[in-house]
């Protein structure tokens, strides 16, 4: 397995959000502040990497007929652990991500990678797949957070910098508030996907 190729796939050509269009629910819902995006991205990356490694390790002993059930049990286990740890040690993040942490269980990226990659590949390759796909997901979340937060509220780094308020770049009254609403998530994501497809098709030529 070629790590460089996996890196490129995770970030660009097989980007989980922009190309595979997986994990939409959390992408649309929580990308309203920088801290949310970062927290969600890191949580998913950790869970994805761990579940990829475990599933790859047990792939030889898992009977084919119940593999999805096994995957879900493993993933749900990790998600619940992360959920409890966040509630205990980073309550602010847990509060603002709310129900979307437990919902990582059904995040298609994780089940999708388990089925498409780690069930068929070795532990090391699955580990890197988890990391790179996770980074690809995190980067898209961050891009969406930055765009929506900047245009919508005029700030940068909300929830993290400047005591949680974020650095105000222009007055919030001028912000295009709609981008911070769920509608804005759809609009921003659509524009990003269009941009990505345009860039990829240009690259192919």
């Amino acid at each position: 397995m070629n790590i460089g190729k996996q890196f490129k796939e995770g970030l660009l050509t097989q980007n989980p959000v922009l190309v595979q269009v997986l994990g939409m629910c959390s992408t649309l819902a929580i990308t309203t502040s920088f801290f949310n995006g970062l927290g969600m991205g890191v949580a998913v990356t950790i869970i994805l990497t761990l579940s990829n490694v475990i599933i790859s390790a047990i792939r030889k002993i898992v009977p084919d007929k119940i593999r999805i059930a096994m995957f879900i049990v493993v993933i749900a286990g990790f998600v619940t652990m992360v959920d409890l740890l966040l509630q205990a040690f980073v309550p602010a993040l847990s509060e603002s991500l709310g129900v979307f942490i437990p919902l990582i269980v059904v995040n298609c990226i994780i089940l999708g990678r388990a089925e498409a990659f780690s069930y068929k590949n070795g532990i090391v390759a699955s580990f890197f797949d988890g990391i790179f796909q996770g980074i690809g997901y995190t980067l898209v979340l961050l891009a969406m957070c930055i765009i929506r937060e900047f245009l919508g509220k005029g700030s940068f780094g909300g929830g993290l910098l400047n005591g949680g308020a974020g650095i105000q770049i222009f007055p919030a009254d001028y912000g295009v508030g709609m981008l911070t609403l769920p509608v804005g998530g759809f609009l921003t994501l659509a524009c990003l996907i269009a941009l990505m497809q345009w860039a990829l098709s240009k690259n192919k030529k």
């Binding site: 898992v62 119940i66 059930a69 096994m70 493993v74």
Partner: peptide, 8 residues
């Protein structure tokens, strides 16, 4: 199958 799933 049952035992594997149960043990997991």
């Amino acid at each position: 199958l049952t035992v594997t799933l149960f043990l997991t």
